[in-house]
Every structure is written in structure tokens, then in C-alpha cells.
């Protein structure tokens, strides 16, 4: 039960994007379509789970002073792995993600979880945490990606969304300003929900 609550912790209550505000660059850059967003989310989840596993496994042999470089090398190894796998099986997706694929290395979610969680907890808990956080990240990216793709290019996963009804699109949503706008409004919405929960008398207030 505890493992389960730990797993879904990253979905909503500690969502890495909307609540912890981590990993903003890929969040903004790869959500111009749902396909890119999901590809990025899954690649990050893979790296997060693998690096959490290795780091929690080797933590007793890692001297405290050099832990950050060691963590970064572990993470960079898995990112290289993802890059090569994607180049072999999904070359189109790799081209679409472009520079943001190698930049998974500096995604603060991964180093943050390695430092805050995997270096202090056991192997199983760390894998669960990595999986939960990764799924939360993918969900957030998918949400932003769907909204931006529907509004910006009138389609979802490349399939026309308003079939036959309208071909009007607001291209701004798949460009840079639309990314900032969508993310800002989503964060405001999550803030609003949190504020309302606190303000309600007798409402659940656990933090």
C-alpha cells in the first residue's frame, strides 16, 4: 500500500512539472505535438528508472564528495543508450526531438531524484519512485502536448481533430509563445485548485 501511494505520488500531489516546477526546458520545447511529448516523456522515464536503480544500488560505495559527477556519468550513460536506441528504431522521433534528446542529461528531475531520493533509499523504492515521477512527467507533457496540438494544428497524433467542422487553427500555440502561455495557464489552474482546497473550511488540508 505504501509502495502504491509512493508510486502515484508523482502523478498529481508532487507532479514534477506543475507542482515541483522541474524540467521546464523539455516541457516547453517538446510539447508542440502529442507524439513528441510522449516520446520525450517515455525517454525521460526510462533514464529516470535506470539511473535511480543504479544509483540506489551503488550508493554505499560512492564517496560523498564526488557523488554529483558520478551521478551525472551514470545518467549520461543511459541518455547515450536512449539516443542510440532511438536512432536505430525511431529516427523520425529522434530528428523531431533534436537537441533535447542529449539534454535529458541536464534535466533537473533526474539529478534531483537521484540526489533527493535514490541516494538515500533502497533499490525497490527508488525504482518505484522513478517510475511514478516518470509517469507524472509523461502525463504532464501529454496534457500540454494535446492542448497545444489541438489548438495549434487542429489535430491529435496527426489525425484531424475537428473533422469536417473547421479547419481554423491558431498556429501560435505550436510556436514558442504558445508554449509559455499554455504552461503558465495550466500552472495557474493547479495553483487555483490548491488554494481553493486550503481556503475551504474543514476541507482536507494535509501538507
Amino acid at each position: 500500500m505504501r509502495a502504491f501511494s509512493q508510486f502515484i505520488n508523482g502523478f498529481f500531489r508532487e507532479n514534477p512539472v506543475f507542482v515541483l516546477v522541474l524540467g521546464m526546458c523539455p516541457t516547453l520545447a517538446t510539447t508542440s505535438s502529442l507524439e513528441k511529448a510522449i516520446g520525450m516523456g517515455l525517454a525521460t522515464t526510462f533514464v529516470l528508472v535506470c539511473s535511480n536503480f543504479i544509483i540506489s544500488f551503488i550508493k554505499q560505495w560512492v564517496p560523498d564528495e564526488v557523488r554529483i559527477p558520478i551521478f551525472i556519468v551514470v545518467i549520461a550513460t543511459f541518455v547515450t543508450l536512449v539516443k542510440l536506441i532511438m536512432a536505430a528504431y525511431f529516427p523520425d522521433l529522434k530528428a523531431a526531438l533534436g537537441i533535447f534528446l542529449p539534454l535529458i542529461v541536464v534535466n533537473c528531475i533526474i539529478l534531483g531524484r537521484a540526489e533527493a531520493f535514490a541516494s538515500k533509499n533502497g533499490v525497490v523504492e527508488s525504482i518505484t519512485d522513478g517510475l511514478g515521477m516518470g509517469v507524472g512527467f509523461t502525463l504532464a507533457l501529454g496534457l500540454l502536448g494535446s492542448v497545444r496540438e489541438i489548438l495549434g494544428s487542429g489535430s491529435l497524433l496527426g489525425i484531424p481533430f475537428f473533422n469536417g467542422v473547421s479547419t481554423y487553427t491558431q498556429t501560435i500555440f505550436i510556436l514558442a509563445p504558445g508554449g509559455f502561455l499554455t504552461l503558465g495557464l495550466f500552472m495557474a489552474f493547479f495553483n487555483y485548485l490548491a488554494l481553493r482546497k486550503h481556503a475551504r473550511p474543514g476541507g482536507e488540508d494535509k501538507k
Binding site: 516546477v21 509559455f180 502561455l181 503558465g184 500552472m187 495553483n191
Partner: peptide, 15 residues
């Protein structure tokens, strides 16, 4: 209140 802090910064960045 809901926009204070980071959300309004993102909206300004959009502009």
C-alpha cells in the same frame, strides 16, 4: 492569487 509567482512569469515570457 492563483497567478502569483511562477504562472505570471510564464505569461510575461509569452508576451
Amino acid at each position: 492569487p492563483a497567478l502569483r509567482g511562477i504562472p505570471i512569469a510564464f505569461l510575461a515570457a509569452a508576451g
